[in-house]
Amino acid sequence: MAEKNKPLVVDFVGGAVGHRFRQGGGRSQALPKAIGFKAGIIPNVVDATAGLGRDAFLLASLGATVTMVERNEDMYQHLLDGMERARKENDEYRDIMDRLTLIHGDAKEIIPTLNPEIILVDPMHPERKKSALVKKEMRIIRDLVGTDPDAKELMEVALHHASKRVVLKWPMKADPIEDLRKPSHQITGKTTRYDVFIRS
């Protein structure tokens, strides 16, 4: 349950997402680099763990076509609401929303039906053992959706079905997923790393 007087809201127009969108930064950011944005290449992406939809929105704002998959019913409804409000904001946001598709269900079952090129996986990981206090918003989300104990199984499905690459978004200091093969390369930030698995 969300904390009292602090309901969870998916907001693509205001807050951190809207600020990042207005400030730009575009393809120079770590995520677009990991996904494979290049001159003349507009990726087709499956975001297997949609969450608040922020990564999917960033990619769609850069021109990518993104299919979001969210298995938690409450989060799915929050996303639908946020997408509808953004669509009504203006033509620019409506164009971005037109590049986003939202599916409710388990990505492990849905991915094989999508013929995906690029898959982004951002599991809800357990709290780190010596971490600073988790941001309030992240605590609310974790209370709502829990963690993803099947992250390795999801990654295996993604690695089997993606035709071009799989990108795993993971906390910089978190332990790696056990027994998962090594990535082709990594793109790192201050608190997050992107493990990139290129499909040959």
Rank of each mutant, 00 (worst) to 15 (best):
F37M: 14
F37T: 08
K38S: 10
K38I: 00
A39Q: 10
G40S: 06
I41E: 06
I42V: 14
T49L: 10
A50E: 06
G51T: 01
L52Q: 08
L52E: 05
L52A: 08
G53Y: 00
A56Y: 02
L59M: 11
A60G: 05
G63D: 02
T65P: 00
T67D: 02
T67V: 11
T67P: 06
V69G: 01
R71I: 04
E73K: 15
E73S: 12
E73C: 05
M75E: 00
Y76S: 08
Q77N: 04
D81K: 14
D81F: 13
G82E: 00
R87E: 12
R87F: 12
K88E: 15
D91Q: 14
E92W: 11
I96G: 02
M97F: 11
D98S: 15
D98G: 15
D98C: 13
R99C: 05
T101N: 13
T101D: 11
H104F: 03
D106M: 06
A107H: 09
A107I: 01
K108A: 09
E109T: 12
E109S: 12
I111W: 03
P112F: 04
L114Q: 08
P116K: 13
P116F: 10
P116R: 13
E117F: 05
E117L: 12
E117V: 03
I119R: 10
L120E: 01
D122A: 11
P123Q: 05
P123D: 01
M124V: 14
P126G: 02
K129G: 01
K130S: 12
S131L: 07
S131K: 13
A132M: 13
V134M: 14
V134D: 01
K135W: 07
K135M: 11
K136F: 02
K136L: 06
R139P: 04
R139K: 13
D143C: 01
D143N: 13
L144V: 10
V145A: 08
V145W: 05
T147Y: 04
T147P: 05
D148W: 06
D148M: 15
D148F: 08
P149C: 05
E153I: 10
L154M: 15
L154E: 05
M155G: 02
M155W: 03
